[in-house]
Design a binder for these strands. Structure first.
Lengths: 194, 194
DNA sequence: GAAACTTCATAACCTAGATTAAGAAATGAT
DNA sequence: ATCATTTCTTAATCTAGGTTATGAAGTTTC
């Protein structure tokens, strides 16, 4: 088990001494999620922040009609959690599912707080991480309000290069915000064009 | 000029000694924005984080067809900035406009960094602030994908109680993501119902 | 390897909301 | 006060995307 990937990830925004790296790593647990298994389900309290070492996760929620809406994909080198639930410690609405066999590192809520106390620079790290995420979500709101389904698909392909191949049509449709039927129609149209 | 409001606001997530309060306050500038004036315009680099003492601001951006889309309203006791621009120091797409005469406190990017260095607990404060904001934006993405325009209007009324009265139809429409014409039709329908 | 399920594609029809247009009401400038 | 500009309403028409339905093609399960 090597921690290079996560150390590199963290080092993008803060710098760590050897000791600090060691302490940070001691706060992590490693985990595995087989394809189609869940790390978190609707109604549960989110106890971990997950970091993806390999594979890919998907965070989505079901609306009142049972339709899935994907909020985020987390391929290698991404962080994911149900922030609402993690922050409030209340049951959330998010499902986090493995799209393929996934290796992870897990930071429990308690260890996250410990980390903040011992190494306050991690407050900075997570602040910056959340800021980036917020910028993405704001852009997505604007995209949803101003782009066509076809343009949102392009936008998805740019944000997650190569991911489209690993996903089912339904999953992609649930991210760009259309029905699978319409997505299928759209693909046929796109194929004809080129 | 009293700083009670902002101190109370900050104290929701971190606690400050008298000295720390003093230092924090010394980092702030006060400002004013007359109705319909801009604190920030598309293409500019965002140099401040704003805190609203009274009045109300609106953050929106124009899409490629010149249509306005409102990302956020900031009434009394709210924070607002163009995070994308503030973080990257690149020109942003956000316009921040005063909906009515507005009194503000302004924290410059430089002073924000100073504050982080001198009082690292402010990293925590802004982390939590941004987390809350992220939770809201995620909910809004789900709302946009699963609710009807009418339901999004209800949702807006709940999130910003009493604000509807201060806004033009166009501004509300640009938040819930419909044209002013459709919003007008919708209101007529709602009025008939009750 | 057949039964059972889920996914995908295609097509006919439907609807929420967009577009266009045009008059009425409000707001602002002189 | 008056003219100009923007905002709001209503209505007719249009369209992106939804719904329903059906069959074909993969997957899972035993």
């Amino acid at each position: 088990m090597t921690f290079d990937l996560i150390i590199q990830n963290v080092s993008r925004y803060i710098s760590l001494t050897r000791e600090e790296e060691g302490f940070f790593i001691s706060m992590l647990q490693s985990g595995h999620a087989g394809k189609k298994t869940f790390l978190l389900q609707e109604g549960e309290v989110c106890r971990y922040t997950y970091f993806v070492m390999s594979g890919c996760l998907r965070g989505y929620s079901n609306d009142k009609n049972g339709v899935e809406h994907t909020l985020i994909f987390a391929p290698r080198d991404w962080w994911i959690s149900d922030i609402y639930s993690a922050v409030t410690q209340k049951p959330g609405m998010l499902n986090i599912e493995a799209i393929e066999d996934t290796e992870l590192l897990m930071l429990s809520n308690e260890n996250r707080e410990l980390l903040f106390t011992r190494l306050p620079k991690f407050e900075r790290f997570f602040r910056i991480l959340v800021e980036k995420s917020l910028v993405n979500m704001q852009q997505r709101i604007l995209d949803n309000m101003s782009l066509t389904a076809e343009e949102r698909y392009q936008s998805f392909c740019t944000r997650y290069p190569g991911l489209a191949d690993k996903l089912t049509s339904k999953q992609i449709a649930s991210y760009i915000g259309v029905t699978p039927e319409f997505y299928s129609k759209m693909r046929a149209r796109l194929a004809k064009k080129s």
